[in-house]
Design a protein around this nucleic acid. Structure first.
Lengths: 232, 232
DNA sequence: CCAGCGACTTGACAAATATCAATCGTATTG
DNA sequence: CAATACGATTGATATTTGTCAAGTCGCTGG
């Protein structure tokens, strides 16, 4: 691995508290690879050989069953994925594929587990990371079970808007078919859902979203920090 | 707390690897309480003051939004809940209420975080516990997003059957209204779903479920270890 | 330039799910 | 024992969501 990547990884919360020696050990066994778009990095059901770290690009975590499939989450730099499978030495529950050209670190799971056993700082960082992941999925689960698809879309747009610095207009982070899958609906329904939000001042032009009256949309969406706030 | 409860708690994976001193410290600040049924133990949004351990009885984790509510999970002895909120010192994402008369240990979150900082064994046990919780929610999420309500019910019954030692008949673990909520449907729909499984040999008499032909039901349900196997 | 591809949209329809109201059955209680 | 309360069920209906089949639009590669 090029040494230039070290600092970026070291700076991750997950790796910043471990001893330099242990970090070195991890990095010695690791390697970095550049992947083109649409490459399947891991397949659900396979043993978790590597902990992955996305340095650049983005990765889609998805799952399939009985001919259907669904996007579960998107991983953006710089963060890790499939930490839980790695540490439990259990099969992946989700598949992963690159969405764009991506630079990814692969750290042998075996090494991660070994260092985890001897480095308290690493173990503690892992707790924080896993707790965060757990709470994110719980929020997503609440979103799915408590809201209609229209409400999910409205709240998603408000979250994206906040992420864009409360701008009145912003671009969708990815294509609509996958947004639909993430929100748990079909692409056709997403199209209709966008129309359904027109009365609340939402206009769509291709990938560009404009929110005419944020307060109006919020009155409908009823965003809630226990579902929509990703920082806590 | 009565000393008789110590061994039960100590035997939990979460607490078995920590030093005796740290365990003592945790137990000194903890207390045990008996709650009647239907008592709300915690409310979502509140600060996480205590890590909870269910010694006996059972607890429903649920969440509400905009007048709707849904059951997220059931906690049975002996295990903990809201570990993630405790460790992140963040508000509860779910509310909890006793389903029956329950005996519950309350351990001040502050103590848990303090010991977590100094006891590597505890931190490591926490990682395992959180990874398990995370994977459980992911499975549940896949169940929700990839399956129809009929398929969810069929697979739920197969899981329960396995839990009952592959018996041809078994009793539902809780009342149907809450089962419906857990499976993400209305009670009315659950009733119809049971009827919908009759062609596959499922018969219902009150709380008693009989599975006439397990292979037949499995052909319909298509159980998958990456969704339905809770041990991995 | 333009043919072709793929994502998106739209409409018509079908299926799944929720809602509302009424009823049934059982367990509890005065 | 009767009255009642509550969960479960059922039927009718409405809403939501998915499916299928066009058709549009924009982009890209020859």
């Amino acid at each position: 691995m090029p040494d230039s990547d070290y600092p970026d990884i070291r700076r991750l919360d997950l790796f910043s508290d471990m001893t330099p020696e242990h970090f070195q050990t991890l990095m010695r066994g690791a390697y970095v690879q550049n992947f083109p778009p649409q490459i399947e990095l891991i397949t659900e059901g396979e043993p978790s050989d590597f902990l992955h770290v996305v340095l650049s690009g983005s990765v889609d975590l998805f799952s399939a069953w009985n001919g259907r499939d669904t996007s579960m989450a998107t991983v953006r730099p710089i963060s890790t994925f499939i930490l839980a499978a790695t540490i439990k030495n259990a099969p992946y529950l989700m598949s992963a594929r690159t969405l764009e050209k991506s630079r990814i670190v692969l750290i042998p799971s075996q090494d991660v587990r070994a260092i985890f056993d001897v480095d308290g700082g690493f173990a503690r960082a892992m707790v924080t990371e896993l707790a965060q992941c757990y709470r994110s999925v719980i929020k997503s689960q609440k979103d799915l079970k408590l809201r209609t698809s229209l409400e999910r879309l409205a709240n998603y747009l408000l979250r994206q808007q906040r992420h864009a610095g409360d701008a009145a207009a912003f671009d969708l982070a990815f294509e609509k078919r996958r947004l639909a899958s993430i929100l748990g609906m079909t692409p056709e329904n997403l199209s209709r859902a966008f129309k359904g939000l027109q009365p609340y001042g939402v206009t769509v032009d291709g990938t560009r979203i404009s929110i005419g009256d944020q307060a109006d949309l919020e009155r409908f969406a009823k965003p809630n920090s226990l579902i929509d706030d990703f920082s806590t």
